[in-house]
């Protein structure tokens, strides 16, 4: 008698979220990102369907970022101009989507004006036809000024906006809802808050199919296992019918990985850690690969070589097993 594998069958699936609107549908994007639809734990193809491939998107900033040199080098002087940076990601690194972090809006980091940033997004949309994720600067008061304006000027493009948090979600949700975009619901590695925030956002009338969960993750060596277990627990609940956790996950892998000292300490400092060049890339790639196994749908990444490794790994995972 052959070995028979025990297969789990679940009653519910993850919602499907579409980011970006093509010309035919009233937007101006050349392609869209479709995520979600899983009917079981990731990549167990004989047990459930991974309807849509997880995607990587490149993180870009509205100002030159304060990144370590080994992360800046592949982009060169393009980092000084958001549009050049975006073009490089699309043309050279074959990006499937972009995530614009409006770091320069922060009162302590440039304090860019609402109009300035709205203009930037309009230009970006005009010149680059990739689906777009827009992140605020992290200052609630400022974000509540800039994000609604940007939602308005990008109406019809079905972008993904972030982030709604438990103490500050109403303004952003109202803006995103009115202008037909999608929203990131962010919780601090806390499944109870993740669920509660989704309830609060849906109570405002936001369809569940327009919410993406940012569970907040940690890099390899910095709480990765904890974030992994939260995501896994949310998924198990979602597949068992918990509609308030059945949203796709977005993971800010680049943000986390490049904060780790292992990704940026040079060879003189730690000679036995090996090449810094490879180490940084691997730190980001390994962090991303782990969250793919936990159910990540969108990975926001930074280093093009790390993205290349992860894309290859995704293709491998999508093969029948």
């Amino acid at each position: 008698m052959g070995l028979e594998l025990v297969k789990e069958t679940w009653s519910s699936a993850i919602n499907i979220v579409e980011i970006g609107q093509t010309k035919d549908a009233g937007g101006s994007r050349g392609s869209i990102i479709t995520v979600g639809g899983e009917t079981g734990l990731p990549f167990l193809h004989s047990e459930s369907k991974t309807l849509n491939k997880p995607v990587t998107v490149f993180e870009i900033w509205d100002v030159e970022p304060d990144w370590p040199d080994n992360l800046k080098s592949p982009f060169g002087k393009n980092l000084k101009n958001t549009l050049d940076w975006a073009k490089l990601c699309k043309n050279e690194f074959k990006a499937k989507g972009l995530c614009l972090r409006l770091a320069g809006a922060h009162p302590d980091y440039g304090n860019k004006t609402v109009d300035e940033l709205a203009k930037l997004v309009e230009n970006l949309l005009k010149q680059i036809d990739l689906p777009l994720i827009i992140l605020g600067c992290g200052d609630d008061t400022k974000d509540n000024l800039i994000l609604p304006k940007i939602a308005e000027v990008s109406k019809g493009e079905s972008l993904l906006f972030g982030s709604a948090v438990q103490d500050n979600y109403k303004t952003l949700v109202a803006a995103v809802l009115a202008d037909g975009h999608n929203i990131i619901a962010e919780s601090p590695i806390d499944i109870n808050i993740a669920k509660q925030l989704n309830i609060l956002i849906s109570d405002m009338g936001m369809p569940k199919e327009r919410i993406v969960i940012n569970p907040t993750v940690g890099a390899l060596g910095y709480g990765l296992e904890y974030a992994y277990s939260i995501m896994e627990r949310a998924r198990l609940a979602a597949f068992s019918g918990d509609a308030m956790l059945a949203m796709p996950f977005i993971c800010f892998v680049g943000f986390e990985a490049w904060r780790a000292k292992e990704a940026k300490a040079n060879e003189q400092e730690v000679p036995n850690w090996g090449s810094l060049e490879e180490r940084g890339i691997l730190w980001e790639a390994l962090t991303a690969s782990t969250f793919l196994q936990a159910g990540a749908d969108i990975l926001v990444m930074r280093h093009p070589e790390a993205v290349k490794h992860v894309e290859k790994f995704i293709d491998k995972l999508m093969e029948k097993n």
């Binding site: 499944i191 509660q196 609060l200 627990r233 949310a234 918990d242 509609a243 308030m244």
Partner: peptide
Amino acid sequence: KNIYCDSFLTAYRKK
């Protein structure tokens, strides 16, 4: 059997 959140009574009924 269900994941806690502050509105757990409402959440259950929304299933």
